[in-house]
């Protein structure tokens, strides 16, 4: 017994080191395999407020460019609206909508790590919850992962865990959008079968197989494509429309039927 106590006293620093190391490795590895840690994320009250304060100052430096972006989007939407032709009535019954949109502002962005997260200034009190989609005026951005009362973290598409259903515009060939951690302006679309005809410059949009994003939200254009090692699927480099280094205003998309879809899918036994 005495020897054990002696041992503990003698190696107390080493034991402390091992203990704390196991704690931190535990957090790290757990979130490698599953989600971002529940506790270690920047959507909590303290970090959220500090980041927001700093963001309140720095947003002033980009107001011109940001206004221009919003004007461009308004112009595009007006184009669509005026060319739709005569509309005699628009359904405004809120119970019949599939998607509801909330706006938000980015208060922390990162794009240089293998797992990038973006923090935004909307949270549960603005009815933003996990697994909602986040887009900008140019294209998709990511999926909400953790929320607090006033803030939320977004798993960016620049995240090795990100996996989003995407397809080639105007076709029904869909694949998965992943990221190889190399360049912040290029993501990869995999699992497109080789019989599909591709051209550099083709547009990639979100597919309809996801309960998170609406169909046909722009993602990017094909930069180059190769067959993968088994020669049966393409792996495609997609140049993003979004400049991931410069994002201010975002839209949070909520699919009203998502819970219903997911509940149904969970009931249905799947092969894999």
């Amino acid at each position: 017994m005495q020897q054990i106590i002696h041992f503990v006293i003698r190696y107390k620093n080493f034991l402390l080191y091992i203990f704390l190391m196991i704690v931190s490795l535990g957090f790290t590895i757990q979130s490698h395999s599953y989600h971002q840690s529940r506790f270690f994320n920047s959507s909590n009250w303290l970090t959220g407020n500090i980041l927001e304060t700093s963001n309140n100052v720095s947003t002033y430096f980009g107001l011109d460019a940001e206004n221009q972006k919003l004007m461009d989007e308004n112009r595009r939407l007006r184009d669509l609206l005026f060319n739709v032709g005569e509309i005699d009535s628009i359904v405004i019954d809120s119970t019949q909508r599939t998607y509801t949109i909330t706006t938000g502002r980015v208060i922390k962005n990162s794009f240089s790590e293998p797992r990038n997260y973006i923090t935004i200034d909307k949270g549960e009190e603005d009815s933003v919850n996990g697994d909602m989609g986040v887009i900008t005026s140019k294209g998709i951005l990511g999926i909400i992962e953790n929320t607090s009362n006033h803030f939320a973290t977004v798993q960016s598409i620049l995240n090795e865990k990100s996996n989003i259903n995407a397809k080639i515009k105007n076709t029904d060939h869909f694949g998965s959008l992943v990221w190889d951690m190399k360049r912040y302006d290029v993501v990869q679309l995999i699992d497109i079968p080789r019989l599909v005809k591709l051209t550099v410059g083709d547009t990639i949009v979100t597919g309809g197989m996801s309960s998170i994003f609406p169909e046909n939200i722009p993602i990017g254009t094909i930069r180059k494509f190769d067959l993968n090692s088994s020669n049966s699927f393409y792996s495609i480099d997609v140049a993003l429309f979004n400049d991931m280094t410069n994002i201010k205003n975002v839209y949070i998309v909520n699919n009203e039927y998502r819970e219903e879809i997911e509940a149904l899918e969970n009931q249905t036994p799947s092969d894999d």
Binding site: N13, F14, Y17, L20, M21, V23, S24, L25, G26, F27, T28, S31, Q36, S37, F40, N41, S42, N44, L46, T47, I50, L51, K108, S110, E113, R115, Y117, T119, T153
Partner: peptide, 24 residues
Amino acid sequence: LGISIDFFSDSMALHAASTLTIAY
């Protein structure tokens, strides 16, 4: 120190683990 930086940068406990190692 490491864990407080991890809080802000959404990096799990990477800063904590590496700072701990050099401290030891």
